[in-house]
Design a protein around this nucleic acid. Sequence first.
DNA 1: ATTTCGTATTTCGTATACGAAATATTTAGG
DNA 2: CCTAAATATTTCGTATACGAAATACGAAAT
Lengths: 221, 221
Amino acid sequence: MQSIKPKKSLVDETYEILVEAICLREFEPGERLNQDEIAARLNISRQPVNSAIAILKADNLVEDTGRRGVIVAPIDPDMSSSIYEYRMVIEPMAVELAARHLPQTARSEADAILKEGREAVERADMRALLQSDRCFHEMIYGWSRNLVIQKSMQVTWNHLRRDMAEVLRDPSRSAPIWDEHAEIVDALLSGDTTGAADLMRDHLRNAHERNSRPGDGSSTG
Amino acid sequence: MQSIKPKKSLVDETYEILVEAICLREFEPGERLNQDEIAARLNISRQPVNSAIAILKADNLVEDTGRRGVIVAPIDPDMSSSIYEYRMVIEPMAVELAARHLPQTARSEADAILKEGREAVERADMRALLQSDRCFHEMIYGWSRNLVIQKSMQVTWNHLRRDMAEVLRDPSRSAPIWDEHAEIVDALLSGDTTGAADLMRDHLRNAHERNSRPGDGSSTG
DNA sequence: ATTTCGTATTTCGTATACGAAATATTTAGG
DNA sequence: CCTAAATATTTCGTATACGAAATACGAAAT
């Protein structure tokens, strides 16, 4: 028998809804978040909205403008390049750590996510594509068993998603990332740790180059 | 003429006070935070305390216990080892990035912090020691200009401080870390980037080994 | 026509109130 | 005396109220 799962607080739910809305560009960068409107839309009082916004501030997803509330943080090129720079070190590290802790279920876990990713490409479903892309990487962070990587990438992916929502226009061009994901997993599961880490670097580099080409809409990976 | 600086909100102030109290062990791991008591002690209403606690939850500094509030997160050995593992990669990376962006003021900035650190050792002032240790590393993150490193280390240092407050008993044994800090800066400022990154790794390893010796209380670096 | 000042309105930060949920204590029954 | 049920108390999540601060608008003065 399962225990009764405590419901999420309104603060937590509101936070998640706002993160999603910011990352998927329902709120544009620079746009002001009005607490009354959000509260009315979610049919709750303003107080949990205010608390959720405080957490968003800590995440740097919104910026304070003084007494007149917060704006959605502008897209900052420095942040984008910091993320790329950071990931070029952390993602291969996560791959190497993952190689030490592979669960028995690694193969089936990976296959399920790869399948989802390819289907999202076929369906041209951008939301699902972003989601499964993130799941792929989080799978590896999970295998790495490094709590700091897991936490910092949780926040970092929200920023990354904002960049990706900016450039994603043709999900079908995301097909190559799933080939690259599959190659990384194959190398990792076959014991070629160094190769897997190198493939991860290539993967990030490819995605970064795709994003730097004006008008070329592809996933960051 | 200077502009009038807006005051910090009660939520922000409360958050900072609580972070400090948790990291310096005024609240012990596992201890429950009572919102009414904290609010009475700070002479404010409970609501900003509640919001500040929500942010602490996002930081993993406190854990939810259901409707009966939060406890201070227990010291988790997995977290400690994750932090060490993570820093062994990120801190040298920050050093290497810093080498590319050294400000004109680097020498004087570094000297000021080194001076403060040595004085804190002489005064056997643990709080000042932790603070200047952190300032030293944050100086390097600042020079690295990588926003993700800066943000993730901001949160990570709070966890690290909890470990350090656990093991720090004899600040005078922290004297070597300031020699090590000085050597890192000298190498960095003299253009020996690889040497500086290696010295950072040695520094972290030394501090980690000191902390792993039972009954030996020294700074983590 | 433009500028300044006073007033109204909007929005947010925080205090207070209310009710839900969890825990502690007391009471009643075997 | 022990156990279960009832009741009281505690604590928190959230709604509501209040006041501060910022902005918008209109009237008066230049």
